[in-house]
Write a protein that binds this DNA or RNA. Sequence first.
DNA 1: TGGTATCTCATGGGATGGCATGGGAGTCAA
DNA 2: TTGACTCCCATGCCATCCCATGAGATACCA
Lengths: 154, 154
Amino acid sequence: MKLFLSTTVNKVDRKGRVSVPAGFRTVLAANTTPGVFVFPSFHGACIMGVGSDEMERLADGTESFAAFSPEHEDAARLIFGATHHLNWDETGRILLPAELREHAGIDDQAAFVGVGKRFEIWHPERHREARDTARQRAVETKLSIPMPGSGGAK
Amino acid sequence: MKLFLSTTVNKVDRKGRVSVPAGFRTVLAANTTPGVFVFPSFHGACIMGVGSDEMERLADGTESFAAFSPEHEDAARLIFGATHHLNWDETGRILLPAELREHAGIDDQAAFVGVGKRFEIWHPERHREARDTARQRAVETKLSIPMPGSGGAK
DNA sequence: TGGTATCTCATGGGATGGCATGGGAGTCAA
DNA sequence: TTGACTCCCATGCCATCCCATGAGATACCA
């Protein structure tokens, strides 16, 4: 299985263009539909990015829940209503919609952070802060890496 | 089953390349996806290395927890965001990302230490120190190895 | 048993191509 | 005409590829 891994900081030029890291492009290209789907994250000041297959899975997920909970109906509306489908150009660059750039507070640099089946786009400094506090929390809760057979965390 | 065993110290050249010990390569090559997955250890100044199968189990672990706890979402972000997938060249060398080299304080030499299903990469001197204190602790606490089905030791 | 051939590995360095980045020109709509 | 966006071309750095060397281990043979 292909996963989005590692963190890359790329430049956003005056036209608002950013290179999608080559490794991420490879993962995205393995999807049924080419290109990348981006939408604002609920949890933090960042942009979420997924391939078409994961996007579809997300749709299935919200759909199955929608019948039972109005919150998930809201979630579906929020996600899909704010999602953009972007294709990169010959050199691998996309144009981030201003609305998403503002949500993440991105100006001249963008950090692409792999999170397995999806990835996030952050303002580099904001990401550093978020990562540090997450790390802090992980240490405080004595979180260990959930390794199979180790009984997991906690 | 193949395991990562013994310790090998290899040179890091000016370009940042290191030979992965041939024995380790053999173990890694038995995985579904070729190459090696490396990420910084949370607990010590070293780099962790695993094959694709172990990485996938790790991914499944974080994923199953992610739905229920924000801490594990943190864990997923921390691990995947810092993980690099490296392929060795014809001669068996990989290029250690500068960010990981710094985390482990590695300059011109790297110690590959087998730890069963995974291995660690250390600055040789740091490893010697860590190993000595670990040995000390083991003697003091009368450590024994917990075996599955044996009722376990503490 | 001494010596030689061969193989595997680790290591060095030059060359090449991929990738990120910058900018110009063309197109379309407001 | 201006602004937003899309192609297209140019550039520089760095990761990777390729070739060469040397050390150590093992096998082979006289």
